[in-house]
Design a protein around this nucleic acid. Structure first.
Length: 554
RNA sequence: GGGCCCGUAGCUCAGCCUGGUAGAGCGGCGGGCUUUUAACCCGUAGGUCCCGGGUUCAAAUCCCGGCGGGCCCGCCA
């Protein structure tokens, strides 16, 4: 729809409907406080239902089935559907007004008694109704919906109205956000809100969005992380704080990255990275139990990227069930089909080829058990095992050669610690499907983390991987002002050498550490990716309510 | 930044390979119908074939360029 179409749509509506009561608003009886909840009404649909109870509900008309002097209407609200039953016998002339004027997409209030139709469906025998809001745009049937990703993201409201799955995904997102907050509150955390517009961007390595503060005539930045401010709160005397923080990184968009995304960062004074790992696994477990009702979730894993060992480790029956589920899922949960022995043989023989053939992607749903504890594996051990190198002794030339094979460029010059982490990221990360903590990173890779108590060449840092994605990152926080100062200086050097994502030095933060920060553990959890796990989505845009698309009214 | 794919009615798509009057289903609109579930039956309107250029007697179709989108690779420690 372009602008002229839009104004035409509105004008023709004004012309046509001005003769009826226009733009009705909710009054009196139709107030939300007096409405029954459709979900609760449906839940009464049991053999012991109290028939004849009068209910008042409101929602969007998603289907009309008009049989002369009798009509069935599907009403949807908050994702729940209930059927209205309207007859001319009861409604008299207002029945005709309904069938003449109410269309798919309109929002309607109705009141009437519950009963069961001949076909056994719980319905409302409407005695009164009101048209509350008119839909000027003809809506499709939900069973077709809209599939064009661009249209779905640009017109998310349409996507939500027409595609049940999209509605459920966002519902899960909002529920997860709620669960996280409740869980943190229960554990005695304060929910902090720290500056989004910052004079120095810190707490991560990323390109910032720049902005100009008129009042100060200065260039500031949108935050890339709340970390340094939350730690200032620790200095100030708070000992358990968290923030559900929108952060902004001026980088590319792909299936796991979005310029504006949501992190949950939490800090605990007098704690260390072990405590933060426990927090992470208990939080994930708790979300799974509350949302799924079980600690096991299913996620479609890219077999080409993570390797076939995930399949080889599974029992025959489990593979069969998961393959059936995968096929069902990729049919939009419409067509269930049995898998034959030849399907399974083909899958086991060449999973990537088989999956490309049947669903067009090398993905298979895999069961992930989020029940703690998750294994803790040392980064250097992983490198030793997977790349067959001795991370402490291998010559730099060999590391560079391995990096070259993956076309990895180290900005700001070669640094052995960063090279080791890069090797891990490019060779191993994608294969970490089951929940696992990778721990103890080389010191030079993490300027804000505290050195390892047993080996000063390392830092007490962990990252949590699930489904081949980095879900969380945490460490024992650096609280030694001198070492923090040196680490910042080092970052500045790297910036000068061309590493545009080396961290900016925040000397006010160093001064805060000079005042004294208690030893502490911190964690950042990527909320959008977490939601991807729980909704089985493989693109971050699917779980972001209004993802970025290029400007323009379409 | 490199590669692959997509763009046709409001939606989902066919037509494109092999150039010859723009198609279907659903939706819309009008009519009928008192127990439907993607209701059904009859009728009807609806198009910048993403944009621009080229080849041709003739382009939705072939070629070039652009725009928008999706996916993969690289980058994002």
């Amino acid at each position: 729809m372009d602008l002229s179409e839009l104004s035409q749509c509105i004008e023709s509506y004004m012309a046509e409907y001005s003769k009826y009561y226009l733009f009705p608003y909710i009054h009196g009886d139709e107030k939300h406080s007096k409405l029954d909840n459709i979900a609760e009404v449906i839940s009464e649909n049991t053999p012991e239902v109290k028939w004849e109870r009068e209910v008042r509900i409101a929602g969007r008309v998603m289907a009309l089935r008009i049989h002369g002097a009798l009509a069935f209407v599907d009403l949807i609200n908050e994702g729940y559907r209930i059927q209205l039953y309207l007859t001319k016998d009861i409604l008299k002339e207002s029945y005709d007004w309904f069938t003449d004027n109410v269309r798919r997409g309109d929002i309607v209030w109705a009141k009437g008694k519950l009963f069961r139709t001949k076909r056994g469906e719980l319905s409302i025998n409407v005695s009164h109704y009101k048209l509350l809001s008119k839909s000027l745009i003809a809506l499709q049937h939900t069973w077709i919906g809209i599939e064009d990703p661009e249209l779905r993201y640009r017109k998310r409201y349409l996507d939500l109205v027409l595609n049940r799955e999209s509605f459920e995904v966002l519902k899960t997102r909002f529920n997860i956000l709620k669960e996280i907050r409740l869980w943190m509150y229960q554990r005695g955390f304060y929910e902090a809100d720290t500056p989004i517009i910052q004079p120095v961007y810190g707490g991560a390595a990323a390109n910032p969005f720049r902005t100009y503060v008129n009042a100060l005539t200065e260039e500031w930045y949108l935050r890339i992380a709340p970390e340094l401010y939350l730690k200032r709160l620790l200095v100030g005397g708070f000992s358990k704080v968290f923030e559900v923080a929108k952060v902004f990184r001026n980088e590319d968009i792909d299936v796991t990255h979005h310029p504006e995304f949501t992190m949950m960062e939490a800090y605990i004074a007098y704690a260390d990275y072990e405590d933060m790992m426990e927090l992470a696994e208990e939080l994930l477990y708790s979300i799974a139990i509350r949302l799924v009702g079980s600690s096991t979730i299913r996620y479609p894993v890219d077999i080409e990227r993570c390797g076939r060992s995930v399949i080889d480790e599974m029992d025959y029956e489990v593979i069969e069930e998961l393959l059936e589920y995968t096929l069902w899922s990729y049919s939009g949960f419409k067509k269930k089909r049995d898998v034959s022995k030849s399907d399974l043989d083909e899958l086991r023989k060449d999973p990537v080829k088989y999956l490309y053939r049947v669903i067009g992607e090398p993905r298979l749903y895999v069961e992930l058990d989020l029940k703690p504890p998750y294994p803790r594996v040392k980064l250097l051990e992983l490198l030793r095992k997977h790349l067959d190198i001795d991370p402490e002794a291998a010559p730099d030339e060999h590391l560079v050669k391995l990096l070259m094979e993956k076309q990895v460029v180290l900005r700001g010059g070669y640094n052995r610690d960063i090279a080791l982490v890069k090797l891990f990221e490019h060779y191993i990360e994608k294969s970490l499907v089951k929940p696992v903590f990778v721990i103890d990173y080389p010191r030079g890779s993490s300027p804000l983390a505290k050195p390892h108590r047993a080996d000063p060449r390392l830092v007490e840092r962990f990252e949590l991987f699930v489904g081949g994605m980095e879900i969380a990152n945490g460490y024992t926080e650096q609280n030694n002002p001198y070492e923090q100062y040196v680490a910042f200086k080092d970052q500045e050097e790297r910036r000068k050498l061309g590493d545009i994502e080396a961290q900016e030095a925040d000397y006010d933060f160093v001064e805060a550490l000079c005042v004294g920060m208690p030893p502490a553990g911190g964690i950042g959890i990527g909320i959008d990716r977490l939601i991807m796990l729980f909704t089985g989505k493989t693109s971050i845009k699917e779980v972001i309510p209004f993802p970025m698309v290029k400007k323009g009214f379409k």
